[in-house]
Amino acid sequence: MIKALQMIPEKCTSCLLCEMACSLENEGLFNPAKSRIKVFEFEHGKTSVPYTCTQCEEAWCLHACPTNAIVINKNTGAKEVIDDKCVGCKVCTMACPYGTVNYNSATGKVIKCDLCGGDPKCVEACPTQAIIYVEHEAPL
């Protein structure tokens, strides 16, 4: 049984602490622009929706990668980018139907959610439990 991130938009206050925690974990500083998770706002803030890679079963990013730089973490089920193998061709960003793989111009590589190795920092940072990490049988 592996775990997946579950988003509950009704609880999201749009504080962006998930984006901050994500950038801190992955980039070592506070920078929502470099976050793997994004909060989208609609209608003057009536609705806000945190969104990131669903770690989907098909994993088109993984199949599209010409250098095998995206691999499955057997423990978490996350599709992870191996930086040393990524050549920054961006094919995965086009293959992803959800727009959750993004190119980082500063490093010339792509970035995506890797579930922080099984301890997602966005979950820890969310003050309203709008993002939870739950067990499931198949990818959500």
Partner: peptide, 17 residues
Amino acid sequence: LITNKACFGCTIACGRI
């Protein structure tokens, strides 16, 4: 009232929508 919302980085979220 529909919901409450936060400013950036806020764990209070006093704002009303």
